[in-house]
Amino acid sequence: MIFEESTEPLLQVDSLKTYYKTKTGNVKAVDSVSLFVDRAKILGVAGESGCGKSTLVTTIFRVLPRNAQIVEGEVKFKGQEILKMDLKTFRKNIVWRDIAYIPQASMDVLDPVYKIKDQMIETILAHEDVSKAEATERIYKALESVGVPPEKADMFPHELSGGQRQRVVIAMALLLNPSMVVSDEATTALDVITQAKVLKIMKDLQESRKFSMMFVTHDLALLANISDSILIMYAGKVVEFGDVEKLFRNPLHPYTKALVDAIPDLRLRKKKKLVSIPGYPPDLENPPKGCRFAPRCPIAMPICSQKEPPLTRIEGFHYVACHAVTKQ
């Protein structure tokens, strides 16, 4: 799909399909997903667990499990199709150097048997021809930039707190000054106070270094203050995509509205009644015909269970896949 606002995006995903093969069929985890991330901008990707967010990320980084298959679609980074690129070339010239990854669990990146400094040095030397002394100096500066004392570099991962480990991973992601950073639920395992501190660090670094970012989370409220645009996923599909202010002020898809209504507002004197979404997400091995949200949708029409709604531009940078909206 071609978005009118997308002129020369840093990252562009077009009609991507990634399925998981099982003994009983294919799980359609990412099904015809299109998006773009502009230069020096932050795209927030939100949706409940199982909607395909992490599969989207692992497809971009080409670290899918063996039973996963990219059925069709393109992923272009700086105009290059990276899914068809030689894997060694991709890992040598693109990953970490140009597009970095911050995982949900810091221990997925940090090796428990190596000191922080040794792991960070290895990251630099694997991609750049610099001296060990120069690499070490860069490591200390990187740790200081995320609020970690340089002496922590001589510690093992288990000797740091969860918040410190997550800051170390952020520092590692930025070691090679990438053009883009992808954060996959990077703050989920942290307490609220530490989460706020880590988010502020990430936002400040993004603004100062002008890199692009894809921030993936199941918590829509987190994206309000850091994102320029937001993509809402449901059951492997994009249901709404647009400017952050438009999406929060005027959510169009019933699923997005339900997510916004579920966010508590502490500013209100009168307590707001939180709304839950009845039912369960569909089985992606055998998804319902038509709109996948239709079985849970309060405004579903007969056409919703028969025909899949296309992602349609409504006004400005605001796209939605809903028959009830496009019919108006």
Rank of each mutant, 00 (worst) to 15 (best):
Leu252Trp: 07
Leu274Asp: 00
Tyr280Ala: 15
Leu268Ala: 08
Met214Asp: 03
Leu274Tyr: 08
Asp191Phe: 04
Gly290Leu: 08
Glu315Gln: 10
Gln306Tyr: 10
His218Glu: 13
Gln195Phe: 02
Leu284Gln: 10
Met301Asn: 07
Asn225Thr: 12
Phe317Ile: 08
Leu174Gly: 09
Leu205His: 02
Ser227Arg: 01
Leu176Arg: 07
Ile201Met: 00
Glu315Lys: 11
Thr256Asp: 05
Leu247His: 06
Met180Asn: 00
Leu266Arg: 03
Phe248Trp: 14
Ala221Asp: 04
Ile226Trp: 10
Leu231His: 06
Asp219Gln: 14
Pro295Tyr: 09
Gly279Ser: 05
Met214Ser: 00
Ala300Gly: 07
Lys237Gln: 15
Ser183Gly: 13
Asn250Asp: 14
Pro288His: 13
Lys197Asn: 08
Ile226Cys: 10
Glu207Gln: 14
Met172Lys: 08
Asp283Ile: 14
Ser179Tyr: 11
Leu231Trp: 09
Tyr234Thr: 06
Ala171Met: 11
Leu205Tyr: 04
Met172Glu: 13
Pro309Val: 02
Ala173Gly: 15
Lys270Met: 06
Leu284Val: 13
Asp243Pro: 04
Leu284Glu: 11
Ile303Pro: 00
Glu285Ile: 13
Lys200Gln: 12
Ala221Cys: 03
Ile314Ala: 11
Pro287Ser: 15
Leu222Pro: 00
Met202Tyr: 04
Asp204Lys: 01
Arg296Leu: 10
Ile299Pro: 00
Asn250Pro: 03
Lys246Met: 15
Ser208Tyr: 03
Ala294Met: 12
Asn286Leu: 14
Ile170Cys: 08
Gly290Asp: 11
Ser183Glu: 01
Lys197Ser: 09
Ile299His: 08
Ala196Trp: 09
Asp191Cys: 02
Phe317Glu: 09
Ala221Gly: 09
Val182His: 06
Asp184Pro: 04
Leu268Met: 08
Glu245Tyr: 15
Ala300Lys: 08
Pro310Tyr: 02
Ile226Met: 09
Met172Thr: 11
Gly242Thr: 09
Asp243Gln: 09
Pro278Leu: 08
Glu245Trp: 14
Asp191Ile: 05
Asp265Thr: 09
Val198Asp: 01
Leu176Trp: 09
Glu207Asp: 04
Thr312Arg: 12
Pro254Glu: 11
Leu199Asp: 04
Pro281Trp: 14
Thr194Phe: 03
Pro302Val: 13
Ser183Lys: 01
Thr188Asn: 02
Arg267Leu: 07
Leu274Cys: 05
Gly290Cys: 11
Lys271Asp: 03
Ser305Ala: 15
Asn225Val: 09
Met233Asn: 04
Val260Gly: 07
Met233Thr: 07
Asp219Arg: 14
Ile277Glu: 06
Asp184Trp: 06
Lys289Asn: 14
Phe211Thr: 11
Phe211His: 12
Ser305Val: 12
